[in-house]
């Protein structure tokens, strides 16, 4: 009898526990809602919209049902391929040059010299000037009829085409103007976090200043350098304003093509497909980056 009497309460207990657990889960979901909801609305929804729009399922404009035609158009069009390569080239060149320049500046700023504090202050200046304004500044300096060209004319010299040029030199210059300080800001923070004792130990063991930089500072700053490079690459690959202002008529940067398709031709699906190609490219770069970092970590761990 006593075992039978005990049975209902034993069953009731797990039921209570289940209900409590369910209530707790709902509570957790409610707590997650502001953060997760923001990510869903601000990031996932547009990406989803982009992906669906690229295959004709939804989005702005008339829906024609599922089709991969837009991708066919993007991939088959030589102008699109040229635009893709142009954007890739802009991004890679800016990334490499920013990192090299920022590393050199970081090394220089580790030395003490008169005017160092002024340099530390001035290098941040481009960060507060929007790149569109920088584009106009560069245009007045290196554009045809700009300061450089007029000065060269005074000397009876010619002036190369540096804006609207096919190599994108003008675009790269403006991107560098903005990206070098960004990269330097990150690098200085990373270099600043390297314990002073390590640098002193290297000097004490006979390392000259360049050797300290090469053997101690650079390897320890490498994770920061690669993270900065990734950010610069993604930013420049998706750059629209500067390439549209200073870039050549052909090839155009991919975001410029995308905008043309979207705003001038109302080819929503093609514009979405370009967007998808760009997103996949940046995701691929990030995946490669994380693989390389993970491999480096594994190698370091032996």
């Amino acid at each position: 009898m006593s075992t039978l009497a005990a049975a209902p309460s034993e069953i009731a207990a797990p039921r209570h526990a289940l209900r409590r657990q369910r209530r707790r889960r709902i509570g957790i979901l409610l707590l997650l809602l502001p953060g997760a909801g923001f990510i869903a609305i601000a990031m996932i929804a547009p990406l989803l919209q982009l992906a669906l729009g690229s295959v004709g399922l939804t989005g702005l404009g008339p829906s024609e049902g599922f089709s991969l035609r837009a991708f066919g158009t993007v991939l088959a069009n030589p102008m699109m391929r040229a635009a893709f390569l142009f954007s890739l080239r802009l991004a890679l060149a800016t990334t490499v040059l920013s990192v090299v320049a920022a590393l050199a500046l970081a090394a220089l700023l580790m030395l003490s010299f008169p005017g160092r504090r002024l340099v530390m202050l001035l290098y941040k200046l481009p960060l507060v000037v929007p790149s569109l304004i920088a584009a106009f500044l560069i245009l007045t300096m290196i554009g045809p009829g700009g300061m450089g060209a007029r000065f060269a004319m005074q000397l009876g010299l010619g002036w190369p085409q540096l804006v609207h040029d096919r190599a994108g030199i003008g675009v790269i210059l403006v991107l560098l103007w903005h990206q070098i300080p960004v990269t330097l800001l990150i690098l200085l923070a990373v270099v600043g976090s390297i314990p002073r004792d390590l640098i002193d130990a290297a000097r004490n063991l006979g390392a000259t200043a360049p050797s300290v930089f090469r053997h101690v500072i650079l390897p320890l700053a490498l994770p920061g350098v690669s993270a900065a490079a990734l950010l610069v690459f993604i930013d420049c690959f998706g750059a629209y304003a500067v390439p549209s202002l200073l870039g050549p008529a052909y090839p155009q940067a991919l975001p410029v093509m995308m905008t043309t398709e979207f705003l001038e031709r109302a080819h929503w699906q093609v514009a979405s497909a370009i967007g998808v190609v760009m997103t996949i490219t940046t995701i691929a770069v990030m995946v490669v980056y994380h693989r390389l970092i993970a491999r480096a970590d594994r190698e370091r761990a032996g």
């Binding site: 002193d200 130990a201 004490n204 000259t208």
Partner: peptide, 16 residues
Amino acid sequence: AHRRRTAMVFQSYALF
């Protein structure tokens, strides 16, 4: 420092 031929062991060891 790099030309003094002194060798220092730091409190933190300062191993690379």
